[in-house]
Simulated scan of single mutants.
Amino acid sequence: MFLDISQLGVHYTGRSKPAVDRVSFSLQAGEIGVLIGPSGCGKTTLLRAVAGLERANAGSITLAQDVVSSAAQHVPAESRRIGMVFQDYALFPHLDAAHNVAFGLTHLPPAQRDQRVSEVLELVGLGNVHKRFPHELSGGQQQRVALARALAPQPRLLLLDEPFSNLDVDLRERLAHEVRGILKAAGATALFVTHDQLEAFAIGDRIGVMHQGQLHQWDEAYALYHRPATRFVADFIGHGVFTPAHIEQRGDDVVVHTALGDLTDMLECPLPGAYAGGLCDVLLRADDIVHDDSAPVKAQIVRKAFRGSEFLYTLKLHTGETVMAHVPSHHNHALGEWIGIRAEVDHVVTFPRETGAAPATTPI
């Protein structure tokens, strides 16, 4: 592994809980990793520890087989050959784009420095902005100049801390795709911090979900969405709800009884013995619920959010449970209207029943 983080702990004086608590994950050379989670979850502290800006109190950080952080060892940030891109870009306003990019290349002869500046500006799609100052560039262009400056010294690892947070929402996902292409073209290994799921999905090969200093899951985006390892990941990623369910063995098959009816052909479903009495909570994603006027189960629209090509409906069943559904936007139903719905679940994801949850649903 090119970057290996093992049981990393970072503690701040005066705090009872560690900011980073026994976190382990790794990146291969050329991979892009993303850390995502709510504010205060420890993702930026972890990034700063990798950069050498925070000391490790436990565990270790290994970069290209060199231990750069441990409880007994701390390689200074300037000796790690790590590039950083900050959320405020940190461009020098009095320098044009070329001189901003050249700032970390003073060790090179002038001709080589100019060549490298041209190479990286071309790489980020800004081959014609050498003489333009930051205030003459758009936010997206400024971000790419900052990326070019970080890539110019050919760092072993690139760190990006919420780099798109100052940009318009519509620009973020597009720029994330562009930056991914730039990093892949450069052969860079990168670790990226964001709170935006669409950014994370657009840029990351591996995504880590953090909460209260702990890493709950380090995986591909598809697995985080369809096979969340913890209830927090299931709740944090995507749209969905937890609804009470009862798992029953019926011959050679496992049946999951829910308020939406029986879920069958559940190849990945745990056996009833995994939970006391077979009682659990099942995760129902918005794309697991299909609008079908002929379905026997009806639900009332209590909230609707227009997303352009679709609505995100929040629906309440007669039994009181709430579910969510993605519905094509030409199905423009009114609030309070009752519509037919059915479940189409490819991956049954279950968790222990939360205390105080509703009783198990009887088959419909």
Rank of each mutant, 00 (worst) to 15 (best):
V345I: 07
I341W: 10
S294T: 10
D288F: 07
R285Y: 02
T258C: 09
L284K: 05
D292V: 00
A334N: 13
K304C: 08
L335Q: 15
V256T: 00
E344I: 01
Y313R: 06
A286V: 07
H331F: 14
G308H: 03
A286M: 09
H257M: 02
H330M: 06
I301A: 01
D287Y: 08
T258G: 10
Q300V: 13
D281Y: 02
E344A: 10
K316W: 07
L279A: 06
P328C: 00
A343S: 14
A295S: 15
W338Q: 11
V297N: 06
P272A: 07
D288K: 09
M266I: 12
I341R: 03
G251P: 05
G278Y: 05
T314E: 13
T322E: 12
V323S: 05
E321N: 09
L271P: 04
D252Y: 01
I341V: 13
A286I: 02
E337Y: 04
E321R: 01
Y313A: 04
L335H: 15
R285D: 01
A286P: 04
H326C: 00
K316I: 00
T322Y: 01
A299N: 04
D252P: 10
T319R: 10
A299Q: 12
G320T: 03
V302T: 14
M324Y: 12
V256E: 07
L279G: 01
G340A: 04
A276E: 14
P296M: 08
V345K: 00
D262L: 11
E344M: 11
N332Y: 10
N332E: 14
R250W: 00
V297I: 13
G277D: 02
A276I: 08
Q300E: 15
L312G: 03
L263K: 07
A305P: 06
S329H: 11
V345W: 02
Y275P: 06
G273C: 08
A259W: 01
K304A: 09
V327F: 06
H291Y: 11
T319I: 05
V297W: 01
D292C: 09
R285V: 10
L335P: 07
F306C: 09
E310N: 11
V302Y: 04
D252F: 05
D281L: 08
W338E: 09
T322V: 12
C280E: 13
T264C: 12
V282H: 08
P270Y: 07
H330D: 14
D262A: 15
E321V: 03
P272V: 04
Y313C: 01
H318W: 09
L283V: 13
D253T: 02
Y313T: 04
A325F: 05
E344V: 09
H330A: 05
A295H: 12
D293C: 04
G320M: 03
T258A: 08
V282D: 05
C269W: 07
V254R: 12
H318G: 11
K304Q: 10
E321S: 03
